[in-house]
Design a protein around this nucleic acid. Structure first.
Lengths: 338, 338
DNA sequence: AACAGAACCGAAAACGTTTTCGTGTTAAAA
DNA sequence: TTTTAACACGAAAACGTTTTCGGTTCTGTT
C-alpha cells in the first residue's frame, strides 16, 4: 500500500525544489523546457495526482456542492439530483448528497457538518418536520456566513436566498380544469396536511379552478391524509358516502391508491371516474391504466438550481440579489382521463 | 458576509496563542480552568466551528465515503444508498454520491477526482459499459494505492476487494421453483444480455430449477433484451408464438411490461400466467395486481457494504483480507402467483 | 533558602499545495 | 569589458488545524 506521491517527494527525487515541481507541472514558462519535461515524465510515471484537500485549503474552496433532501427513495428527488449532478460535473464540481429523512434534527446536523469547509454552497429541500416547526435558524446561519444557498420545491419564504419552485397552484388549477373540461363535476382532491407548503398550494389551485368554473366547493370532497394507510381508508370512506367523477391527487402514490379503491368499487377509469396525479414518477408511467399526471420536470429543476448556485459561486451573480425561478409544469395525459 | 472565525482570530482577540485556543476548546487539562472558560465562551459567541478541510489535511483522512453507482433513479440503488448513509453517519462519516450513468468514461473520471484526498474509501457498483469492456484498471489503481474498496451487486470477480452480493442464481432458482411448484410448466425468462453479470447468474438459476424439476429447457422461452421497447416487442412475440404459463423477469420493469402484454392478450394473471419479478421496488408493490417478486434487500446490502468499508478504515479488519458477503434474498409473494 | 515538581502556556512543525518575491547565472547589448 | 536583461530556480509564506516539546512561573517541601 504505497502512499500517494507528493510534490515534495518528486522534488527530492529530482533534486529540485517543491516550487519548481509545482510550476513545471503547470507548464509554467518560468521553468526550462528541460526540467519541465523531466518533472512531467516523472510525475506521469509515478501517477502523481494533486491532493484535493490541500488545494481546497489553499484556495478556500472545495469545488463541492452540498445537497440535502428529505428522502432519496423518491423519483422526484432522484431526478433533481441527476439534474444537479449534470451541471455540477460539467462545471468541475462534485455533489455531496445527504438525507434528512424528514427529520429537523438530522437536517441541522447535516448542514453543520457540511458547512465547515467541505462544500462551497447548498442546494436543499426542507424536511417535513422543519416545515412544521418553522424553525429556520440553521438556514439563516449558513447564509449569514456568506454561503450561497438554493432551495427548491419545499422552501421557506422568509429566507433570503435563491429558490426554484414550480407553479404549484397553477399546476393544480390546470389539472383540475382539465377534469372539468372533460365533463367532471364532482371532483375530489386528495392532499396532505396544510403544513407541507406544496400541499397547501395545490389545494388552493384546486379551489380556484372550481370557483372559476362556478362549481360549488364541497368540503366533503377534500381529503387530507398523511400516509399510505390513512389515504386508503379515507378514499374508501369518500367513495362510500360521496358521488365522485374525478379525483385529483397531490402526489402519485395517493393517486395510485385512489385508483385501486375506485376499481375495487367496480367503477371504470376513466369512464366513471377520471384521475390525475402529481409528479411524473415511475408509478404513473407503468400503472394500469397509465396515470395522467402533472409532471414536475425534476431534472430541469435540478439543473436550474445547480446553475443558480454555480453562478453565485463563480461570481456571475451579485451575492445580495436573489431570484426565484418558477419551472413550468405540464400535463401528461395518459389513460386515466377522458 | 463575515468569514468564518478561525483559531488564529480567537487567539488574537484573547491575546493567547493558537495552541492554547486549540487545547482550551478540547478541554485539555493543560490549560487553566479560567482560560478554558474564556476561550470556550468566546468561541461559542462567535459560533466557531473547526474547518474540516484543515483537519482532513492534518489527519490525512476526510471522513468521507465515496459511492459510485450507475443510476440513481433506481429504487434498488437508492435503497442501498440509504443503507450506506445510515451506517456511515452513525460512524461519523459523510457520503459522497456520484453517478456513472452507465458510462465507463464517467466512472473512471469520478473515481479519479474522488480518490485524491476527498474520500477515505469507495463503495461502488459497476456501470454496464465497464462490465462490457471488462476494463478494471481504475479499480486496480485505487486498491493499489491502499484505498479500501467495497463492490456490490455488479462486481468484478477478478478484483481483490470486499464484495457484497446476493445469491443471484439461488434467488432465481427459488423463484422459478416456486412457479413450478404452483403448477407452471412452460416458464419463460426475460433477461438481459449476458455481459451484465447479474443477468447471467439469474439465467443460470432459471436453468437449474428447470433441470432439477426435469422440465426440458426450451431456447424459445428465453428472451434477452436490453431495454424497455425491446422488451415489449420481444414479449409480444413470445406470447404470440409460444404457450406460456409462467414468466420470470430479472427486474421489475421487465415484469411489469410483460404483465401488460399478458393482459393485452386477454390472459388472466395469475390464473393463466404467473409472473415473478426481481427487485422489490415501488412498481412491484403498487402494480395491479401487485407483483410477486424476489426481494433484494438493498438497504441491508448498503448497510453491509458500509460496515465492511468502515471496518477497514478503522483498522478493525486486516487490509489484506477480503470478504465476500452474500445477502439473502427472499420471495415476496403477492398477487401474480398462485 | 533552595529545590522539585506541578501548572500553565507558546513556538514550531507538520499535512500538500500555490504563489510571490528574490537571487544567481548566463547571454546579449553597450 | 561592463552593464543589462532574460532566464531558471528556490525560499518562504499562506491556508487552519493538531501536537510535541520546551520554557516560565508558582506552590509546596526540605
Amino acid at each position: 500500500m504505497k502512499r500517494k506521491v507528493t510534490l515534495k517527494q518528486i522534488a527530492k527525487e529530482l533534486d529540485v525544489s517543491v516550487s519548481t515541481v509545482s510550476k513545471a507541472l503547470k507548464n509554467s514558462t518560468e521553468i526550462s523546457q528541460d526540467t519541465r519535461e523531466k518533472v512531467q515524465a516523472f510525475a506521469k510515471l509515478y501517477n502523481y495526482r494533486p491532493n484535493n484537500i490541500a488545494i481546497s485549503l489553499k484556495n478556500r474552496q472545495s469545488k463541492n456542492i452540498g445537497v440535502i433532501i428529505p428522502e432519496i427513495v423518491h423519483h422526484f428527488f432522484t431526478q433533481v439530483i441527476s439534474g444537479i449532478e449534470n451541471v455540477a460535473n460539467s462545471n468541475g464540481y462534485n455533489v455531496i448528497v445527504t438525507l434528512s429523512n424528514e427529520s429537523f434534527e438530522r437536517e441541522v446536523v447535516n448542514m453543520e457538518t457540511l458547512a465547515n469547509g467541505s462544500i462551497d454552497g447548498f442546494i436543499m429541500s426542507l424536511s417535513k418536520e422543519t416545515q412544521e416547526k418553522g424553525d429556520y435558524h440553521h438556514l439563516r446561519e449558513v447564509v449569514n456566513q456568506g454561503m450561497p444557498l438554493v432551495m427548491f420545491d419545499r422552501i421557506a419564504e422568509e429566507i433570503y436566498c435563491d429558490k426554484v419552485i414550480i407553479d404549484d397552484a397553477q399546476a393544480a388549477y390546470n389539472a383540475v380544469n382539465h377534469l372539468i373540461s372533460t365533463g367532471c363535476k364532482k371532483i375530489a382532491i386528495i392532499t396532505t396536511e396544510d403544513h407541507v407548503s406544496v400541499g397547501k398550494l395545490r389545494t388552493l389551485g384546486y379551489r380556484n379552478a372550481l370557483q372559476d368554473a362556478r362549481i360549488p366547493f364541497n368540503e366533503n370532497l377534500v381529503v387530507k391524509v398523511d400516509g399510505e394507510a390513512a389515504c386508503e381508508k379515507a378514499v374508501r370512506h369518500l367513495l362510500k358516502y360521496q358521488v365522485v367523477d374525478g379525483i385529483f391527487a397531490v402526489n402519485e402514490l395517493f393517486a395510485i391508491i385512489a385508483m385501486r379503491e375506485v376499481v375495487r368499487k367496480d367503477l371504470k377509469i376513466p369512464e366513471d371516474v377520471s384521475v390525475i396525479g402529481f409528479t411524473d414518477g415511475i408509478l404513473s408511467k407503468y400503472s394500469n391504466p397509465p396515470l395522467s399526471t402533472v409532471v414536475q420536470h425534476g431534472y430541469e429543476i435540478g439543473m436550474m438550481a445547480g446553475q443558480m448556485l454555480i453562478d453565485k459561486l463563480e461570481d456571475r451573480e451579485p451575492e445580495d440579489h436573489y431570484r426565484t425561478e418558477v419551472i413550468k409544469t405540464s400535463l401528461e395525459l395518459r389513460a386515466t382521463t377522458k
